[in-house]
Amino acid sequence: MSYSLQKMTEQAAREILSWIYPPPYDLYNGEVTEEALQEFAENPYYAICKEGALVGFYCTGYVAQVPIGYLFQAYPEGYLDIGLGMRPDLTGQGQGTSFLQFIMDSIETNQPLRLTVAAFNKRAIALYEKFGFCKVSSFTNANDVEFLIMIREE
Score class of each variant (00 low, 15 high):
1 M>L: 11
1 M>Q: 11
3 Y>E: 10
4 S>K: 14
4 S>A: 15
6 Q>C: 11
6 Q>R: 14
7 K>Q: 12
8 M>V: 08
10 E>L: 04
11 Q>H: 10
13 A>T: 03
16 I>C: 11
17 L>T: 08
19 W>S: 07
20 I>P: 03
20 I>G: 04
24 P>T: 06
25 Y>E: 03
26 D>M: 04
26 D>V: 00
27 L>S: 01
27 L>M: 12
28 Y>F: 15
28 Y>N: 11
36 A>R: 13
38 Q>N: 14
39 E>F: 04
39 E>L: 15
40 F>T: 08
40 F>D: 00
40 F>K: 02
41 A>D: 07
42 E>L: 15
43 N>T: 12
44 P>D: 14
44 P>F: 04
45 Y>M: 02
47 A>Q: 01
48 I>R: 11
52 G>Y: 07
53 A>P: 00
55 V>R: 01
55 V>P: 02
58 Y>S: 05
58 Y>A: 13
62 Y>I: 11
63 V>H: 02
66 V>Q: 13
66 V>Y: 06
67 P>T: 00
68 I>A: 00
70 Y>S: 06
73 Q>K: 13
74 A>K: 01
74 A>Q: 11
76 P>V: 06
78 G>E: 02
78 G>L: 00
79 Y>W: 13
79 Y>M: 00
80 L>G: 09
82 I>D: 01
82 I>C: 02
82 I>N: 02
83 G>D: 03
83 G>R: 03
84 L>V: 01
85 G>M: 01
85 G>N: 05
89 D>L: 07
90 L>N: 02
92 G>K: 01
93 Q>S: 07
93 Q>Y: 00
94 G>F: 06
94 G>P: 05
96 G>D: 04
100 L>V: 04
101 Q>K: 14
102 F>M: 05
104 M>S: 07
104 M>K: 06
104 M>F: 13
106 S>L: 06
110 N>F: 07
112 P>C: 03
112 P>H: 04
114 R>Q: 15
114 R>E: 03
115 L>Y: 03
115 L>V: 03
115 L>W: 11
117 V>N: 01
118 A>V: 12
120 F>G: 09
123 R>K: 14
123 R>Q: 06
126 A>E: 12
127 L>N: 12
128 Y>I: 06
128 Y>G: 07
128 Y>L: 05
129 E>G: 02
131 F>P: 07
132 G>Y: 10
135 K>P: 05
137 S>M: 10
137 S>V: 13
137 S>F: 11
137 S>C: 03
139 F>W: 10
139 F>I: 06
140 T>F: 09
141 N>Q: 14
141 N>M: 05
144 D>L: 15
146 E>N: 12
147 F>C: 04
149 I>R: 02
150 M>F: 01
151 I>F: 08
152 R>Q: 10
